[in-house]
Structures are given as structure tokens and as C-alpha cells.
Design a protein around this nucleic acid. Structure first.
Lengths: 210, 210
DNA sequence: AAATCTTTGTAACACAAGTTACGGTACGCT
DNA sequence: AGCGTACCGTAACTTGTGTTACAAAGATTT
């Protein structure tokens, strides 16, 4: 574990802190598709992402979903972060986008480290900052783009996150993430294919325009 | 200034810190409608809200606006906060919603206080948390509500922020904030009036259903 | 009061996106 | 091979929202 940890975080944290994380953190693995956090969960530990990718979702009262953003190595879930501190319920759902390993840090440690390590404080602030920026981007996408553009952006993001220009999703799954209907997705995907931006196959979409 | 400061923040900060804020902070006043921060501004100080209210906007590449949220007494602009730390440009515009007084804190102080005062750290974390929550709410509103509901929510929020059930805005101003057109706003407002939820007058909308 | 400007109301139309419906095609299973 | 299921394509229609156009009502200036 220490190796993976150093691999991902040695730029950010000093050795002493890395060792602390190593001793008090707990390694957890999730298979692609597994749920990591659900709405309303109380969190007693904070996740640091070592490998893989996580997608973070929002849900409304009718159970309709909406993708917020993806998390990659080196990220932490800032929403979780603030939930930990406030011991409030989770406002989001987190699902493993692909096989993922993360370190769970007990929240008791967090306050100590915040007081003690400047690098930890910077990391926490940095995380909040990137998360806020990501949220702004999400808002821009929903508010200012039409569905064609949103789908294209979604595919590009997903290709990037999975480091694979072939996105393995059904039209229905995309529809859930973007809070629209399957028919709309199919229609627009076909249009994008005709425009030469993607190539369609069963369960697979090749993104040509990255 | 110290009085106002204590008035708004004595629950949160210890006396020592309040005194520090008092000596290094600078009082600023803005009239309703004045711009406080614009897109791309570099920030060399962080605002603490003493009195009044601020509205925070986002803008897309075409210059179209969208209201993100309102700030009240005791709030700070978490976007600004993270801009300060990263010394990056402002991603948002902040406009005085009504006459507003705030304290500008030089960013150099912030790091000292973060290391030194637990109450300051808590305040910063708390601010990030409420801001993220607010952003989630904004996303919910845009993604899951239709325009009727968005307008109603907007009016209720605005009435609350200004502590006045009469909202003094033109239809055009509302249209800008919600990123839609004046005609749409007029149409829906008329409908809401017929439903008995509001009462329309020139430049004024009385919110009956708070 | 006349002229002008701002704000609001309303109709008629355009268009993107959501819905319903149904057929076809690939895949897995027995 | 035959059957059932999941996935995809497409047409026809509805709905919500944006657009254009114009007129009327207040407010402001001259």
C-alpha cells in the first residue's frame, strides 16, 4: 500500500504524513459499477483515490439522476470531505467508474493533520477549489449547452477518464447520466455519427473527435 | 467597525482573532447594484460580509449570465476564497444585491490564521461546505425544475434575501438572472399571478406564497 | 400636454427536447 | 435452431421554452 500511496501522493505530502496515512488508513477496493457512497450515508472516513476512477451523481426527489463529475487519481471527494467535518449526511452518490482502489482515512485524524501539516491543509483547500471549479463547469454545461454538445462533452470526458477512446455504454446509461431519455440519446448519437464525430457499435461508442 | 464585526462574527471567532481582523481588515461599502468582483479579476484580499447581500453570477462565452446564489451576513465568497489561495482569476461576478458593507482581509493574513486559529479553519471549512451545498442546490434547480418552478423559487429566494415580500425587479432583470428571455418571464409571471401565487405591479412583484 | 422611453401583455410562430409506439437486430440461453 | 431479452433506429406527435413582432400602459422629459 505504501508504494501505491507514494506513487500517487509523494509530490503532495511529506514522508512523515505519508507514513501516518499508511498506518491509519485502510485500503479498500471496488469493482467497476459498485456503489461506494449513497445518498444519506453517514461517513466516518474520508476516501483518497489511489487508482481507478469514480463518478459522482446527484438525485432529485423523483429518483432522477444527474452526473456531476468524475474523480481521478489524486482526487478526493470534497463533498465527502465537508460531510466528514460536519458529520452530515451525504448529498451525493459515488459509483466506481472502473476498478478502483482507495484509502479510507478515519475522520479523527483529519483534524490533527489539518493543525499539524501544511501540506495537508493545502491539499484540502486545493481539493475544495478544484471541486468548486468542477461544479461551475457542470453548471455551465447544463445551463449553456444544448443536448448535442452535452453528449459530445460527456463522451470526451468519459473517454479521457477511462483512457480509452471507445466508450462502453448503452444509450440508456448515457440517458440516465445526462437526465434525458434513451430516444433522445439515440437520435443525437446517430446525428453525431453522420457528422463524423463518433462511430457507433452495440454497447460501444468510438470517439473520433477527442 | 469592531462593533459590526463582533455583531456578525462573535459566535464564530475568538476575541483575539476578531481584533486581528479589525486591525488588518479594511472596511468597504457598496451601493446596491455596484459590482464587487468581475470575471478575471485577480484578488488580493478576501471579503467577509458584514451587512447587506451579494448576488453571485456566472457568465458563458457569449456573455449570457446565470445567477448562482446569494450571500448573506456571515458568509464569505468561497469561490473568492479559493481564488485567493491559488492566486487564480475570479471565475464569477459578484454584485451588491442591496447596500452592502464588507471587510477585506489581505490574503497574507489568511495562511497565518489558518495555522494559528482553529476557529478560522472551521470557518473556512464551513464556508466551503455551505458553498458546495448551495452549488448542488443550484444544479438541482437548473437540471430538475422547469421554468415556472425556477421563477417561483427565484422570487422566494430574493424576497428572503431582501427581507421584503415585494421584489423590485423588472421582468428583464429576472430573465437575465435565470438565463431566459423577457417574454418567457412575463408569460410565466402572469400565469403565477392567475394561480394566486404572486401579485404583479410595475417594477414590483409581491410574493404571496412564501 | 406632447413626446419619448421603459416596462409589460399577448399573439403567432420556431425549435429543441421529451414521449409513445413499434420494428429490427444482436446476443445469450436452453 | 429457436426463443427471449436487451439494445438500437426511427417515425409521429406533444410540450416547454425561445423568438419575433407589435401594441398598450406607465413613467419621464421637454
Amino acid at each position: 500500500m505504501l508504494e501505491k500511496l507514494k506513487d500517487a501522493y509523494h509530490f503532495i505530502f511529506e514522508d512523515e504524513l505519508l507514513n501516518e496515512i499508511n498506518t491509519s488508513g485502510q485500503l479498500k477496493e471496488f469493482k467497476a459499477g459498485e456503489m461506494i457512497i449513497d445518498f444519506g450515508d453517514y461517513l466516518k472516513s474520508m476516501p483518497l483515490l489511489l487508482e481507478g476512477a469514480i463518478k459522482v451523481l446527484r438525485e432529485d426527489s423523483d429518483g432522477d439522476e444527474l452526473l456531476l463529475y468524475f474523480l481521478e487519481r489524486g482526487d478526493t471527494c470534497a463533498m465527502t470531505l465537508s460531510c466528514c467535518l460536519g458529520t452530515t449526511k451525504s448529498e451525493i452518490r459515488a459509483v466506481a467508474e472502473r476498478d478502483t482502489t482507495l484509502i479510507m482515512i478515519p475522520i479523527e485524524k483529519m483534524e490533527d493533520w489539518t493543525a499539524q501539516y501544511k501540506s495537508w491543509r493545502n491539499f484540502v483547500f486545493e481539493s475544495y477549489h478544484t471541486r468548486l471549479t468542477e461544479m461551475l463547469d457542470t453548471i455551465d454545461t447544463i445551463a449553456f449547452l444544448n443536448m448535442d454538445e452535452r453528449i459530445m462533452k460527456y463522451l470526451q470526458d468519459k473517454a479521457k477518464i477511462n483512457q480509452d477512446e471507445v466508450v462502453s455504454s448503452t444509450h440508456q446509461q448515457i440517458a440516465y447520466d445526462l437526465h434525458t431519455s434513451r430516444v433522445v440519446v439515440s437520435r443525437i448519437l446517430k446525428k453525431l455519427e453522420i457528422e463524423g464525430k463518433i462511430k457507433l457499435n452495440r454497447n460501444q461508442i468510438e470517439v473520433l473527435d477527442l
